[in-house]
Write a protein that binds this DNA or RNA. Sequence first.
DNA 1: GATGAATGAGTGTTCATTCAT
DNA 2: GATGAATGAACACTCATTCAT
Lengths: 245, 245, 245, 245
Amino acid sequence: MDSRFTNPAAPPWLPFESRRRARDEKREAVLRTAVQLFLEQGYHRVTLNEVAERLNITKPALYNYFRGKDEILFECWSMGAELVDSVIAEIDAGGGSGIVKLRKLVHAYAEVMAIDFGASIVRFDVRDLTNRNARIARAAKKRIDATFRAYITAGIADGSIKRCDAKLAAFAIAGSLNWIGHWYQRDGALSPGEIADEFTVRLTEGLAAKPAQGHTTTKTAPVARTATREARRKATGKKRGGASR
Amino acid sequence: MDSRFTNPAAPPWLPFESRRRARDEKREAVLRTAVQLFLEQGYHRVTLNEVAERLNITKPALYNYFRGKDEILFECWSMGAELVDSVIAEIDAGGGSGIVKLRKLVHAYAEVMAIDFGASIVRFDVRDLTNRNARIARAAKKRIDATFRAYITAGIADGSIKRCDAKLAAFAIAGSLNWIGHWYQRDGALSPGEIADEFTVRLTEGLAAKPAQGHTTTKTAPVARTATREARRKATGKKRGGASR
Amino acid sequence: MDSRFTNPAAPPWLPFESRRRARDEKREAVLRTAVQLFLEQGYHRVTLNEVAERLNITKPALYNYFRGKDEILFECWSMGAELVDSVIAEIDAGGGSGIVKLRKLVHAYAEVMAIDFGASIVRFDVRDLTNRNARIARAAKKRIDATFRAYITAGIADGSIKRCDAKLAAFAIAGSLNWIGHWYQRDGALSPGEIADEFTVRLTEGLAAKPAQGHTTTKTAPVARTATREARRKATGKKRGGASR
Amino acid sequence: MDSRFTNPAAPPWLPFESRRRARDEKREAVLRTAVQLFLEQGYHRVTLNEVAERLNITKPALYNYFRGKDEILFECWSMGAELVDSVIAEIDAGGGSGIVKLRKLVHAYAEVMAIDFGASIVRFDVRDLTNRNARIARAAKKRIDATFRAYITAGIADGSIKRCDAKLAAFAIAGSLNWIGHWYQRDGALSPGEIADEFTVRLTEGLAAKPAQGHTTTKTAPVARTATREARRKATGKKRGGASR
DNA sequence: GATGAATGAGTGTTCATTCAT
DNA sequence: GATGAATGAACACTCATTCAT
C-alpha cells in the first residue's frame, strides 16, 4: 500500500515527488501528442496551437515543459533514439555470432519502426533541429549505422556471413528497415511482429553463410517502451535537454 | 544579322518556336535549381526568393512559369517520376524472366535515386502538394511499388524467384533503394553505377531460385535523362499541369 | 521554544510588529533589486522573473508585496522622490538668501542623482506608470522644478542672483543635474561629493550677483537615505499606494 | 524644365532614378513617422502596426525599407546624429576662440534638440539597438561629448575661458542641452531660437573669461535639416545601413 | 516577360498576471 | 506566504502571392 497512507510520518517531500511525477507525465503526454501530429501532418504543418489544443491546454503552457518547438521535436526524436540504443545495448549484452546479432537487430529495429517515437528517428528532418541537436542526432544515426556494419563485419570474420561489402550491405538492410517507418500503418494488415519476422528472414537470407536453422533464437525481448527517463528528467527541468541553440 | 529580318521567306512560326524553346529552357532551369535547393535544405526552408536569386531573376518572375511554390515542387517530382516510368517502360518492352526484370529494375531504380529529380520522388513530402497533385503522386508511387511486386510475382510464377511474400519482399527491396535517395552524395566514395551493381546483387540474391550466372545481362540502357517534356509543355503553359488546387 | 507559547503575557502585537517589519524589509529588498535592474537594463527589458531570481524567490511571490510590475516601478520612483522632498524640506527649514538656498539644492540634488532611487526619478519613463501614478509623478517633478525656480526668483528679489529668465535658468540647472543620473557610475573617477561640489560652483557662478565667499556654507546634511517609510507601509499594504489603475 | 519632357532622348535609367527617389522619400516618411511615435509614446509601446497604420500601409511593407524595428530606431537616431555632425563640421570649418566655438555649438545643439531627430539622440535608449549599432551610437555620443570638452579646453588654452574642470563643465553644459530634448514641446511658449539664445548666454556666462560683447557672432547657420543622405541610400538598399545584428 | 512594392495570413515566442494547492 | 502551472494578450517577423507599371 502507498506509504503515504500507512506511514503517518511520511516525509514532507512526497508532495514534491508526486508533483514532479505529474510534471513528467504531462511532459510525456506532450511528446506523445506531438510525435503523432508531426508524423501525421509533418513538422512544419503542425502548429503549437494544434498540439496544445489536442492536449486541452494553451500554447504558452507548452513552454513550461519545452524551450520551443524544435526542442519538442528533438525530444520526440530522442525518445526514439533511446529505444534503439536500449535494443543495441541488449543485443551487445547477449552473445552470438555476427549473423545472430544482426538478425536480432533487424528484428528489433523493425519493431521500433512501428512505434511513433521510433519512426520519428527516420522521418524527422534533422535540419529542423538546432545545430547542436542536429549534431547529436546525426551522431546517433551514425552510431546505429555503425552497429549494423559492425555486426556484418563480425559475421564475416566469424564465418557466419558471406564475404561482401559491409558498408553497402548495412545501407541496404538499414534502408529497408527505415522505410518501414514510412509505410507502416497501425491499422494495416500486418502486425509489427509479422513484419519484423519476415524482414529478419528476407534481409539476411542473402547474407548468411548457411541458412538459419531456427528463427526463435533471433528474437529479442519486446522493445522496451519504458526506457528509463530518469536522466532526462533533471536535464530538462528548465534547461534544454543536453541541447542548446 | 538576325535571319528574321534578312530572310523574308523565313517561316513565321520560327520565332515562336524558339521563343517557346527559350521558355522551356528557363522553366527547366528553374526546376533544376529548385530541386537542388529543396533537397539541400528542405522544401519548407527554401524560399522562392532563394530560388529566384540563384537564377538571377526575381521572385515574381517565377510566376511566369509556375502557379506557385507547390507546383514547382510537383513538377520536380514529376520529372523524377518520368524517369522511373521510362525505366519501367523499357524493361516491360524487353523480355526476360521475373528475376531478370527485377534485377533490371533494381539496377535502374538505384541509378535514378542518385539523380536529383529521382531522389525527389522519395524525399519530397506529398502532403506539401495540392490534394489533386498529391493524389497523382501517390498513385504513381503505388504503380512503382506494384511493378516491383509484379516482377516478383512473375518470378515466382516462372520459377526464377523463390516462393515468398511478394508484398513484403517488394517493400524490402524498394525500401533499400529509396533509402539511397537519402544517403547518396554526389561527391561520395561510390559512383551510382557501383551502388546499382552492388544493390542488384545484394537485394536479389536471397530471392533468386538459382544464383545469377552473369551480371551484364541485368543492365539496362543508362537512364534517359532527357525524357521528352513535350507533353508537359502545353499542360503547364499557364494551367496547372494536369493538376488544380 | 517560541515565546508566543511559553509566555502567555507576551504582548500579542509583537509578533505582528516583527512580522510587519520583516515584510517591510522584504519589500524594500525587492525595490532595491528592482531599481538596480531597471536602471541597468531598462524597465522593459527586465522581467519579473529576473527580479525574483535575483532575490531567490519566485515571480508570484512578488505579488505579495506589489500589485504589479508598474507598481514596483512607481515605488522605486517614489523612494527617489522622497529623497528630494526631504532635501527640499530641510533647505526650506533653514534660512538663507536665494542663491544660498539654490546652492544647497544643487548640491544635495546632485548627490541624490548618484543614488539609484534618485536616478530613477529622471531615468524612468512616467508613461510606464498607471495614469494615476503618472499624474503623481508629473506633479512631483513639477514641484521640484518649481522649487528651483522659486529659489532663483527669491534670489533675484533679494539681490543675490542676477536678473534673468528664472524659468529657463531653472531648466538649465535642473537639466545639468538630471543628466548626472544618466552618466554617473558608481565606479567612476568622481565621487558624488566631488561632482556635487563642482556642479554647485559651475551651475551658479553665472547667476550669482557676487561670487560666493565660501563653499562650506552651501552644504546640507548628507542626503537622508533612510527617509521614513512609515506612511507608505499602510498605504501599500495591499492597496496601491495612493494610486489605482 | 524636367529633361524628361524636353529631351526626347532621355536616358532609359530615369524611371529607375525616379523610382529610387520615390523609395527614398517613402523611407524617410517612415522615419519621420516613426521618430514622432517613438518620442511620443516610447519605443516599446509603439508597435510596427501603429507606424504602418499612420502611413496608410501595412506592417510588412515596412520591411521593404528596414530590416526590423530596431533598424528603424537606429536610422532615426542616425538622422539626429548627422544633424549634430554637420553642425560640428561647420563650426570646425569656421574659426574663432574656444568660447566662440563653444557658444556656436551650444546654440546649434540647442536647436537640434528641438527637432524630432535631434531629440532622438538623447531620448532613445541605445540598449534597444543591436550590439553593433549600439556601439556606433555610443561612439557618436562620445565624439559629441569630446567636442564640447575640446572647445572648452581650447578656450582655456587661448584664454577665452576660465580655468576649470573641462570634463565636468562639458557634462554640465551637455546635460542642460540634452535635457531640452526631454522638455521641449513644439507648441510651448518658447521657440527653439529663443531657447538657444538664452541657453547660449546662460551656459557660458560662468565660463567666459570676459563677458561676450555681442551675441550675433555666436549664431551659426540654421541647422541643416537636409543633410545629404546619399551615402546612406546605397548602404540601406537592402542591407542594414552600416549595421548588422 | 519582368520588376518593385505591397499584402494577408500565419506562427513562434514572451511575459505579466492569476489561481489552485 | 509561497509555488508550480497555466493563461491571455500581444508582437515582431516571414513568405507566398498579387498587382501596377
